[in-house]
């Protein structure tokens, strides 16, 4: 699902919620997941003028979860460990971007190549 305009954010969030409801994810986990997704797409719009997203249902043993992938062709992040530190932000935001988002979800993975783009993958399991 492409997200290239600010208006795409709300429909994208509704889509994520549909998937979360489908696998009977608890309300708090749903809220955390969607908030995290919202943070990431907003970042993506701001720094990379948008990108592509994938929503998938994944399972691990008897546990189900949702995996969201965000792929952009933006400037990339040069120093990921630094970007993952609390308080770091290059833009005019609150500076809780990535680390705050990471705290919301079960798994968080970021790969970035300066100059060619960033891929972020997050997973939220139903049982932690």
């Amino acid at each position: 699902m492409p997200v290239y305009r600010e208006q795409d954010v709300i429909p994208y969030r509704s889509r994520v919620r549909e998937y979360a409801v489908k696998i009977k994810m608890g309300l708090v986990s749903q809220t955390k997941l969607i908030t995290a997704a919202s943070e990431i797409v907003r970042n993506m719009l701001k720094y990379a003028n948008g990108g592509e997203t994938i929503i998938e249902i994944v399972s691990r043993g008897r546990d189900n979860g949702i995996r969201l992938t965000f792929d952009d062709k933006g400037p990339g992040i040069a120093d990921i460990p630094k970007a993952m530190k609390d308080g770091f932000s290059t833009g005019r935001s609150l500076g809780l971007g990535l680390p705050g988002t990471k705290r919301l979800v079960s798994e968080f993975d970021i790969k970035s190549e300066p100059g060619s783009g960033t891929t972020i993958t997050i997973i939220m399991w139903i049982n932690g």
């Binding site: 309300l27 708090v28 749903q30 809220t31 943070e39 680390p99 705050g100 705290r103 919301l104």
Partner: peptide, 14 residues
């Protein structure tokens, strides 16, 4: 504010 929203904001650090 909904409980789920409050919990999320705290976790997010807002």
């Amino acid at each position: 504010m909904q409980p789920a929203v409050a919990i999320t904001l705290v976790e997010l650090g807002l």
